[in-house]
C-alpha cells in the first residue's frame, strides 16, 4: 500500500458569533484548502459552527507537562489576587 503521508491539521471551530474558536480535533490534508474542506465535512455536519481555523499540528508550540508545577503552581498561593480575599462589611452592600 502506498502511504499518503499528508500532514496533520488541528481544527478549531467558532460555534457562533460572540464565542472564541475551540479545538475540536484534527484532519489530514494535502494543503490548507483541503484541510478546511475536510474539517467542514467532519466537524460541522450539524450546524456546529460559523467559522473554522486549521493549523498545521507541527506549528503548535506547547508547554511541557513536566513544567506544569513550576509554571502554574505559583498562582495557587496568591489568593490575594481574588476578590473574595478582601473583607468588606455586609453593610457596604454589593461590591
Amino acid at each position: 500500500m502506498s502511504k499518503v503521508n499528508w500532514p496533520l491539521w488541528e481544527v478549531f471551530v467558532r460555534g457562533k458569533a460572540g464565542l472564541s474558536h475551540k479545538h475540536v480535533g484534527s484532519v489530514h490534508a494535502a494543503d490548507a484548502e483541503m484541510a478546511i474542506a475536510n474539517a467542514r465535512d467532519l466537524y460541522t455536519r450539524r450546524s456546529e459552527g460559523v467559522s473554522l481555523w486549521v493549523v498545521p499540528a507541527s506549528a503548535i508550540v506547547a508547554s511541557d507537562p513536566a513544567d506544569k508545577d513550576s509554571l502554574f503552581e505559583p498562582a495557587d498561593d496568591k489568593v490575594y489576587r481574588h476578590p473574595t480575599f478582601y473583607d468588606i462589611p455586609d453593610d457596604v452592600g454589593h461590591m
Binding site: L8, A57, S58, I60, V61, A62, S63, D64, A66, D67
Partner: peptide, 11 residues
C-alpha cells in the same frame, strides 16, 4: 522548556 506538540504526541 517549550516543545513542539507534534513531535511529542504524534506518530
Amino acid at each position: 522548556m517549550y516543545l513542539r506538540i507534534a513531535r511529542l504526541s504524534r506518530g
